[in-house]
Design a protein around this nucleic acid. Structure first.
Lengths: 107, 107
DNA sequence: ACGTTAATTAACCGATCGGTTTCGCAGGCA
DNA sequence: TGCCTGCGAAACCGATCGGTTAATTAACGT
């Protein structure tokens, strides 16, 4: 669990994978259900799910031949926390920073 | 500006690049300064900066032969907003979700 | 028992990645 | 003028990526 941020951000860098995560936000889905909106093969979708799983974003429960996936919030929360560190830049400190760095662009 | 989330998340997937962003959070830096903490060549660091620039995370100002980089908060804010969408999963709805999906694990 | 369905695995492909080394070039300095 | 410095560009490398097709396994329905 050292630096899973690598895998989390990498997983989110792909639009297909982000769409899958959005879908999973609405509820659990099988691999085929996750694949269906996308113009890719089931094998490709299976790989995407595996990437999300490796990142810890998705948990799988095998029910018979169906693999039911659901969202695991913690890695997303970790990534969100990482980004929230920079919140000060687009809040209070933003104007001051721009004024300091590039005075003629502050207005 | 269509879907820069791809490039932003991809940029953040690399620990070296994340370290550079952290450094830039403390103030502007030249490419050489950004490279110095890392055991890579200057050319490699230059590539990293270009990736951050393509993602819109970094802005470059050429001053003589020095390229001064500074943080651009908006793309990071966009990525943060994207993740904040899932906030409900690690807040109020988390318990309910787990109880629904996996009843015997809710306690 | 048989065919269908859900999914993984393996092999393969071209593209991209992250690094290197080398070269080039413009800016600062003696 | 001539040299060092800061940086980008190009060529190259092995590794990984995202996709395919084909084969395989296991579970379900009839």
């Amino acid at each position: 669990m050292v630096e899973q941020l690598d895998t989390v951000f990498h997983a989110l860098a792909d639009p297909t994978r982000r769409a899958m995560v959005r879908t999973l936000a609405a509820g659990e889905r099988t691999v085929t259900e996750l694949a269906s909106p996308h113009p890719i093969s089931l094998a490709a979708a299976s790989k995407h799910v595996k990437v999300l799983e490796r990142a810890g974003i998705v948990r799988r429960t095998v029910l018979g031949r169906r693999h039911v996936c659901r969202l695991e919030p913690r890695p997303l929360a970790a990534a969100s926390d990482h980004l929230r560190f920079y919140e000060r830049f687009w809040n209070d400190r933003l104007d001051a920073l721009e004024a300091f760095v590039d005075p003629e662009e502050s207005r």
